[in-house]
Design a protein around this nucleic acid. Structure first.
Lengths: 115, 115
DNA sequence: CCTATTAATCGTAATATTGCATTGAAGCGA
DNA sequence: TCGCTTCAATGCAATATTACGATTAATAGG
């Protein structure tokens, strides 16, 4: 019904999914990459950099902020964004663990011609 | 307008976002974890394992298949799913690279009290 | 052939997301 | 103070996603 049944899953599964969903938009990937590239702060170069409207970018920034991936501090009339290295590191680890789960899965339970 | 302006972004950004979006649902995380855990193949234990309807799970499996993360081979009357290690490895690398971009971002361009 | 099992697909409803124009608030310079 | 700039918040329209019941298709086993 358009709503995820989050109660069926573990906290960790939901957490992973939330982060992944936040990264699941090229604009947000681009925003993060640009913030990282400029190395620290950014206000609304993003509007010029990506081809999206200011309102749209603001919305994407909001989502990233909610996840804690970036911080915004007021800098006079503009806002200065930078990533939060601690959160970034935490999420990086979460994903690494997830991807590492596979290792070298053997084909034990599999019929010979499966997969 | 509800549609992502993918043409504004690089191929790599879109690719990353696509994978992330696919991982951006706890059911798909759970499916992947279960497939990995059982180590090779799975049919529709998933329906029992997660509390979702068969149609819903089938839909999630379809998305994962479209991404190439898992393969399904017909096994009599049931279908056997397993992850594709090559694709898994490829995506793992993509994400690692993305997360590594940050490294130890200095605060060069930043005002003293920013971030 | 008949039936049960399994999974894909279709149709539908509810909800979420994306993108933007517009509005609102707050700081800055004249 | 009066604009001007910068960004956040809101509200809308278009589209996507999530979930499920019902149906369909394929196969195995009698």
């Amino acid at each position: 019904m358009g709503i995820s049944k989050t109660e069926l899953f573990t906290k960790k599964q939901n957490e992973l999914a939330n982060i992944a969903r936040a990264l699941g938009h090229p604009a947000r990937i681009a925003i993060l990459q640009h913030v990282v590239k400029i190395n620290a702060c950014i206000c609304n170069d993003l509007v010029g950099e990506l081809g999206l409207a200011q309102a749209t970018i603001s919305q994407h920034l909001k989502e990233l902020k909610q996840l804690g991936l970036i911080q915004g501090t007021i800098e006079g009339t503009s806002v200065c964004y930078c990533i939060d290295p601690k959160v970034w590191e935490k999420y990086k680890k979460l994903f690494s663990e997830f991807f590492l789960e596979v290792k070298q899965a053997s084909k034990a339970n599999c019929s010979p011609d499966c997969c």
